[in-house]
């Protein structure tokens, strides 16, 4: 485990250096750049692109989490049960829609820019969270629920103190899936003029500058891997906390 910690710290340091001081890596990317061509992407600072990328993803993910969990709570109550089969159908069908297609279809409806990317990220991000939250709320241990009722907790108290904490690890898994997909889709978002790190990769592809492609790819890849890892750790911590 110690080894993993050292590795993790090294990757974080590498990522921060790549984003804040890309000049340090000129020697590494130079062989990939076209002759006499630019080596480090300078049309926008990598830091501001990273912040914009992460901002877009967090905004979409937070909104998706709030809406998806609320909807999942509603359809798992007796009053909303009639909507459960339809919700399952929508999540099943929706998730076969490729994220890229959702992004591409958002453009005719909403135009270019950050807006349609945000909407596409939000809509697609709902599905995994909603699906996992439904699973979480409908597979609670019956004995625990019975005990909570026996203690005289009201519906609201049961939801806040028992159901949400118990379902939290499963919901978090959904959030993790959703965030990973959002990070990837946001990267493609630069093809519809959203300001994200994908811009660096696209610029490299258009000018045949492999140095750009690799820079962008490396930074996005490291962000994704580290964020995924952080969320896995968080889930493990929560599971330990509640099962202890």
């Amino acid at each position: 485990m110690k080894l993993a910690m050292i590795f993790r710290t090294a990757l974080v340091a590498l990522l921060l250096a790549l984003v804040i001081k890309p000049i340090w890596f000129t020697w590494a990317f130079a062989p990939l750049a076209p002759e006499k061509g630019p080596i480090i992407y300078e049309r926008a600072s990598l830091l501001s692109l990273s912040l914009s990328h992460l901002g877009l993803v967090s905004l979409a993910s937070v909104a998706a989490t709030l809406v998806a969990v609320t909807l999942a709570i509603l359809v798992t109550r007796p009053a909303g049960a009639a909507f459960l089969p339809l919700s399952r159908t929508i999540t099943n069908m929706g998730q076969t829609f490729p994220p890229v297609a959702v992004l591409a279809l958002a453009v005719p409806a909403l135009g270019f820019g950050t807006g349609p990317t945000l909407v596409a990220l939000f809509l697609y991000g709902l599905l995994p969270i909603f699906e996992n939250a439904i699973t979480g709320f409908s597979t609670l241990p019956p004995a625990t629920m019975e005990a909570a009722r026996g203690l005289g907790l009201s519906r609201w108290q049961r939801l806040i103190r028992v159901e949400i904490p118990l379902a939290l690890p499963v919901i978090l898994t959904g959030i993790r899936l959703s965030v990973v997909i959002a990070l990837g889709t946001a990267t493609i978002g630069s093809t519809v003029a959203a300001r994200t790190l994908g811009e660096v990769i696209i610029a490299g592809l258009l000018t045949h500058n492999t140095a750009y492609v690799l820079q962008g790819g490396l930074i996005v890849g490291l962000f994704a891997v580290l964020i995924y890892d952080a969320l896995v750790q968080l889930e493990a911590m929560l599971v330990n906390k509640y099962s202890a």
């Binding site: 890229v100 990769i201 490299g204 492609v213 790819g217 996005v220 890849g221």
Partner: peptide, 21 residues
């Protein structure tokens, strides 16, 4: 393999270019 799956698609496709080149 899980970490591979995590890498955004555009980055993955991009990284393959210098590798295969």
């Amino acid at each position: 393999l899980s970490f591979l799956q995590t890498i955004p698609s555009l980055a993955m496709f991009g990284i393959m270019i210098p590798l295969l080149g």
